[in-house]
């Protein structure tokens, strides 16, 4: 039975694996068992899933703040004129 019990470290690691790859059924069971016994990790899993959504939603090109860089613009224009 002992193989079914995970540490918090391993449990949270499996949660991450679950987001990106598939869990085996043993891993799935280990994780479910751990979550029923560990409120902290269950909470972490919720927040981690939320972060997952935020990262997917927010990390798109359109949301990048445009930084003015006049010095660079001028340098490039100068490069072009010298060609």
């Amino acid at each position: 039975m002992k193989f079914l019990f995970l540490s918090c470290h391993k449990a949270t690691e499996l949660m991450e694996k679950k987001h990106h790859l598939k869990l085996s059924w043993v891993e799935n069971m280990q994780l479910r068992l751990h979550n029923t016994m560990c409120g902290v990790c269950a909470l972490y899993e919720k927040q981690s899933a939320m972060l997952e959504g935020i990262l997917k939603k927010n990390l798109i090109k359109e949301n990048i703040k445009i930084i003015e860089n006049e010095g660079l613009t001028n340098k490039i224009i100068e490069n072009i004129s010298q060609k």
Partner: peptide
């Protein structure tokens, strides 16, 4: 490079440098 091409590229540099830079900085 002919002058017309240079002018066009200069125009692009003016319009797109900030965006390109922001993207590269972000990455």
């Amino acid at each position: 490079m002919v002058t017309a091409d240079k002018q066009l590229l200069t125009q692009w540099a003016k319009v797109y440098t900030n965006e390109l830079f922001s993207w590269a900085y972000y990455k």
